Computed example of a mutant assay.
Amino acid sequence: MRSTDDYKPGTPGEVLQTRFLTPNHITKYRLAQAMNVPPYGIGEIIQGKRRITLPMAIRLAYVLGTTPEYWLDLQRDYDLKHFDVSRIRGEVHPLLSPGLAEPRES
């Protein structure tokens, strides 16, 4: 059995459900009301059918006492882990070799 520290839910919506809603006895409907968004949107995030956008991250952060970065990082990490790179490999062509590109200074 894994410890709770080792558990990493699959989607940002699962994090929302397991770490915020369930332990605090908050319903999707109550969260949606507090955020002034439709309840079906919260349900779709929890089901992994909808991404957490910047406006949604700001709303979640405000009502749950986190930061927008927390929610955006969860979404970004999930997207990077689950994106099918093979979908675009044949459509793009490298301009620089890996490791040769230097970041531009502002």
Rank of each mutant, 00 (worst) to 15 (best):
99 G>Q: 04
61 A>V: 03
54 L>I: 11
79 D>R: 00
31 L>S: 06
57 A>K: 00
7 Y>N: 08
53 T>D: 08
3 S>M: 09
104 R>D: 10
85 V>I: 13
7 Y>H: 13
19 R>E: 13
19 R>K: 12
8 K>R: 11
77 D>S: 08
39 P>A: 14
54 L>N: 12
88 I>A: 11
56 M>A: 04
22 T>V: 13
46 I>W: 01
67 T>F: 10
1 M>L: 10
48 G>H: 02
63 V>I: 07
59 R>H: 07
29 Y>A: 10
100 L>T: 15
63 V>A: 04
11 T>H: 03
99 G>L: 06
6 D>P: 01
97 S>E: 15
88 I>M: 08
71 W>T: 10
57 A>C: 03
24 N>M: 06
22 T>W: 05
97 S>H: 09
27 T>V: 05
73 D>Q: 14
14 E>F: 00
56 M>I: 15
11 T>D: 00
77 D>Q: 13
64 L>T: 04
56 M>L: 15
73 D>E: 14
79 D>H: 02
78 Y>K: 01
2 R>H: 07
52 I>H: 00
20 F>E: 02
66 T>L: 02
103 P>R: 13
56 M>K: 03
87 R>D: 00
59 R>Q: 13
36 N>E: 15
51 R>S: 03
102 E>H: 14
64 L>C: 05
38 P>K: 15
2 R>S: 08
69 E>P: 00
30 R>F: 09
91 E>I: 07
24 N>T: 01
22 T>R: 14
83 F>M: 08
14 E>P: 02
22 T>F: 03
38 P>I: 05
9 P>N: 07
52 I>M: 01
61 A>Q: 11
31 L>C: 04
73 D>W: 03
39 P>F: 15
67 T>G: 09
56 M>F: 07
40 Y>T: 15
